[in-house]
Amino acid sequence: MIQPIIAERLILRIFTHDDAQRVHELLTDGQIGQYLGMLPDPYLLEDAESWISMQKPHQENGIGFTFAITDKQNSQIIGTVSLAPLNPQHRHAELGYWLGTDYWCQGYATEATQAILAYGFTNLDLLRIYAHHLPQNQASRNILNKLGMQQEGVLRKHINHRGKQSDLIVCSILQHDWQENNYSSIKPITTDS
């Protein structure tokens, strides 16, 4: 069982089946789909259900960890943050995240991603965490910059996003740089034993 990660205003916990409705609600609201490159379009309740049911085997095999971002005050899910896929042999993982549109611009994504980075580099002892974003997603880029991520390349026309081929920008941070730069001072308090 994976213990929750406790941050300042947020608690990151694993998903349960009962969360599918809420995930679907958050992902079909407003403009979020414009920014998420890999989302099925249209996004159905079954998509949320199968996404959640895939998480458990991934966690058990150590090839991906996905957390619900919840508000400490009311336990409401406001988004997701993940280290998935994770490659245990190469010790790298992809950072992914999104927040429901109502929760943007309040520093939640920064808080949640900092917490999961600490989890990835300390608890999971990863050497490299990378992230992808669409060129137009400046908000996401700002978060990656705050995390200390560096741009490594532009994969040209790499993904099909809403019927059009789009570039994908790749950024990463290495465990060593994360430790050196004191990003590690932001530690998640976990109840992991």
Partner: peptide, 11 residues
């Protein structure tokens, strides 16, 4: 064309 260098990507 070269598009990027993924640092320490492979063991």
């Amino acid at each position: 064309k070269e598009e990027g260098t993924f640092r320490k990507h492979v063991a």
